[in-house]
Nucleic acid binder design. Structure first.
Lengths: 141, 141
DNA sequence: AAGCAATTCTTAGCGCAGCTAATAGAGGGG
DNA sequence: CCCCTCTATTAGCTGCGCTAAGAATTGCTT
C-alpha cells in the first residue's frame, strides 16, 4: 500500500482511538478507577510486582508521574509499595487482591459501552473488526 | 457473535487505543498542539464555524472545558471567537488560516509514528486493518 | 414597558495527569 | 570516610475534565 493510503488508515485509527477513550472516560464518571490508574494496575496484575522505574517505562510515563499514580492506588488499597530488601533504594509495587478484583470491574465498565456498540454491527463486520484488532495489536507490539 | 467474543474485541480495542494515544502523546512533546485542542480545531476545520455548545457536544465535553480549550486556541491565533450577530449570547468559533495550516502539521506529527508501524505490515494485514477501521468508524458514529 | 425566566457562555475552584528541577536516601568505589 | 551514582519522591508548573455559580442577552408575560 502507498503512503497516502497508510496515512489514511493511521489517521482513522487515531481519531477512532480518541473517540473511544472519550466514550470510556464518560462512562467512568461513576465510581471507577481513572484510566492511568487502571492501566498501571493492569500491568502490575499481568506482569507481577515491579519497581517504579519499570512501571513508569511500561506506561511510557516519567517517574514522578508514576509515583503519584501509585500513591493513589496505594491510598485506595489497590496496590502495595514496599522497599526492596536487596536494594532499598528500589520500591516493590504490587497489586493487592482488592486491586485485582476492582480491575475486572473497572475494565468491564469501561469496555461495556464499546461492546454494546459492537453488538449492533452485522456479523461480517464484527469478524472484520476482530481481524483488524488482531493486526493492530501486532503492529503496536 | 456471542457476548464473550464481542467483549474480547472491545477489550483489545480499548487497550490498543490507550497504547496508540500513549505513542501519540510521546511524539507530541516537541512543539505540537495538545490532543484536545488539535481535535477541536479539526472539527472546526471540517464542519465550519460552530457555537461553543455545538463544539462541546462534538467533542463530548462540557461547556466550561471547551470554553478553555477555545481560549487556548484563540490565544495562539488558531481560532477566532466572536459574538454571533443574530443572537449575541452565542459565540461563533472558527478556525483561522494559521489554524488550518498548523492542523496539517500537528496531525502529521501525531499520526506519523503510527503510519511507520503500519508500513511494516504485510499487504493483506494492511487491507484487513483498513476494513477494520472503516467498520469501527461506523460503530462509533 | 418592566420584569422574569430561560438560554448561552464564562469564571471560580477542585482533582488528576503530564512534565522538569530539585531533594532525600541508599549503595558502592576511591 | 567521602563522594558519586542511582532510585524514588517532593515541589511547582501547565493543561484538561468536572460542578456550581455568575453575567449577559433574549424573549415572553403581564
Amino acid at each position: 500500500m502507498n503512503d497516502d493510503q497508510l496515512h489514511l488508515i493511521a489517521s482513522g485509527l487515531h481519531s477512532a482511538a480518541s473517540q473511544m477513550l472519550r466514550i470510556a472516560r464518560r462512562d467512568d464518571r461513576d465510581g471507577g478507577i481513572s484510566a492511568p490508574r487502571l492501566s498501571a494496575l493492569s500491568v502490575l496484575a499481568f506482569r507481577g510486582p515491579l519497581s517504579l522505574a519499570e512501571l513508569a517505562a511500561a506506561e511510557e510515563v516519567k517517574a514522578p508521574t508514576m509515583s503519584r499514580i501509585v500513591e493513589g492506588l496505594v491510598k485506595d488499597g489497590l496496590a502495595t509499595r514496599q522497599a526492596e530488601p536487596a536494594n532499598r533504594r528500589k520500591v516493590r509495587i504490587a497489586a493487592t487482591d482488592e486491586g485485582r478484583r476492582r480491575l475486572a470491574g473497572g475494565r468491564e465498565r469501561r469496555v461495556g459501552a464499546l461492546r454494546e456498540r459492537l453488538r449492533r454491527l452485522a456479523d461480517s463486520e464484527q469478524r472484520a473488526l476482530a481481524r483488524g484488532v488482531e493486526v493492530l495489536e501486532r503492529a503496536l507490539r
